[in-house]
Design a protein around this nucleic acid. Structure first.
Lengths: 192, 192
DNA sequence: CGTGCGGTTGATGATCATCAATTTTGGTGG
DNA sequence: CCACCAAAATTGATGATCATCAACCGCACG
């Protein structure tokens, strides 16, 4: 990796793989998210596009020089890294302590929110969005198997908490109800 | 939190608690680790000393002014935050994909290493150290129950992978064997 | 000499993983 | 446009791992 980048459109995942193949996704990359680590040569992660992705790339060397000349950029990068750290730690709580159902609900709520905020929408009761991940990719992010993901999604559908149009398009009739299922305190850990 | 700090001696944990009491530790704080987030007012975590702790504290306001005047400090802070992010992501792999036994072995290996590096020791086959955590604190860090922690430690002891002197003092006759049990690739994710 | 905290161990059960069989979907070429 | 194929997803049966509930031990401390 001799460049850094910013996601413009599409969604990618940041994943870690063990020798025996067990896979854990450690981050989702949405539009506006930053990829790469100035000052570090190697990233121990795989970046995998889960939809068509457009990224805005910078060679690392010139970018670092720019950073050195412009302290503001370094500050901004620290801000973003702190946000990523918060997100990672919230995910640790999910991975360590939430049930399968809570995990699914949390993921759906997060995607719903990121999707809504991309479209500049405010908080609404009813939301529709496209899942940018396969069941397997969701499983790798949630620390589950794809079968468990499928079953829990089916359960949420049966109970009317979500509705599916095709496999990927999700409609949430009552976002608050979904967030309850996620067992997050207050606002689900999202800023704002 | 109107101050930032650096741990001088002792060990503390950074934890997150759900409304119903489920607890997840999201970071261990060893000597030399930094606590607090310049530019942020509230930290959504509890800092809990698990041994006697001595910290070197700075009021946040003057510290931030110092940062603004000294770009080097900001760079250093970005470095440290990136390291924390790596640690958090490694822990996500542990929480999402490792078995109870692998989790315990991973934690022991990490504590062994941090302890060894504090004493300026190089990599040795045989290591002895003190566990700075109760079984419950370990459980909260590993996403397990304290009973499972106890059982897995007993199992590692039975198999001769670790030896206990009292409840807290651990001797590892063959560190490589412990690291194998941790199922980490290469060096277990630690720098160096 | 109790009392409480930390720890161990056992019995049982729930959740989720695994293995396996089908079905659905989206894409491609006839 | 339809048939066909592979990938994705669903669903079922079974089992392993880990959580839960509970009893008990040892030690430090008042």
């Amino acid at each position: 990796m001799d460049f850094v980048a910013s996601v413009v459109t599409g969604v990618a995942t940041l994943t870690q793989v063990m020798e025996d193949g067990r896979t854990q996704t450690v981050g989702l990359l949405f539009p506006s998210d930053f990829v790469g680590r100035p000052g570090r040569d190697a990233a121990p992660y795989n970046v995998i596009a889960t939809t068509d992705v457009m990224m805005c790339c910078f060679r690392k060397k010139p970018f670092e020089e720019l950073m050195a000349r412009t302290p503001h950029i370094g500050q901004r990068l620290l801000e973003m890294t702190l946000d990523e750290l918060d997100a990672a730690r919230e995910w640790m709580l999910l991975l360590g302590r939430k049930t399968a159902r809570e995990k699914i609900a949390s993921l759906l709520a997060i995607v719903a929110r990121r999707d809504a905020s991309l479209q500049g929408q405010v908080r609404q009761r009813q939301v529709t969005f496209d899942l940018p991940l396969t069941r397997e990719a969701m499983a790798d992010y949630l620390g589950l198997t794809l079968e468990t993901v499928s079953r829990q999604i089916s359960a949420l559908k049966r109970e009317g908490i979500i509705e599916l149009a095709g496999k990927r398009t999700v409609n949430v009739p009552d976002l608050d109800r979904l967030i309850e299922e996620a067992a997050d305190d207050a606002d689900g850990g999202m800023p704002g």
